[in-house]
């Protein structure tokens, strides 16, 4: 059974993110007035307080800001050890994610990948591998 805590929240502001994820497209918000990008989605631009926010597709490249290797068993879908990280997307927003691939380190460049999930939209994760999937 899917843990309800892992489900998308289902509100109008964040819904488009998960609808796009279902198509393996990573969306972030960009302000139409000041062009600042932001994540996670909100109805107001945190930089200039404009309400004119549009969705753009992220380039899918990022840099690792920090990371930890988890040696605890937290949930059935995670087999320890695994790497959870903060990454800075090239658009200037930061996300928490899982990193796959060999020996990730702070400062490494990573690329968008997707993890399929039962009964939930695919989850954006990131990889140190640069070969075409």
């Amino acid at each position: 059974m899917t843990d309800p805590a892992l489900e998308p929240y289902g509100d109008p502001i964040t819904g488009p993110f998960w609808e796009a994820a279902a198509r393996r497209v990573l969306l972030i918000q960009r302000c139409e007035d000041c062009e600042a990008c932001q994540f996670y989605p909100r109805p107001i631009c945190l930089a200039c307080e404009s309400r004119h926010l549009a969705w753009i597709e992220a380039s899918g490249t990022a840099t690792i800001y920090s990371l930890t290797t988890v040696h605890l068993r937290t949930a059935p879908e995670f087999e320890p050890p695994y790497v959870t990280a903060l990454i800075d997307l090239d658009e200037g927003v930061r996300m928490l994610t899982i990193i796959i691939g060999d020996n990730p380190k702070i400062g490494d460049r990573v690329r968008l990948a997707w993890r399929e999930r039962d009964g939930l939209p695919p989850l954006p994760i990131w990889t140190t591998e640069w070969r075409k999937q």
Partner: peptide, 26 residues
């Protein structure tokens, strides 16, 4: 379940230690 957590919870970061570990690593 909370609105903002939907973007972090799916990534398996144990709470609270994982958060403090990430801070230490940086």
């Amino acid at each position: 379940l909370d609105n903002a957590a939907q973007f972090e919870k799916p990534y398996g970061l144990p709470s609270p230690i994982g958060y403090y570990a990430m801070i230490a690593a940086r």
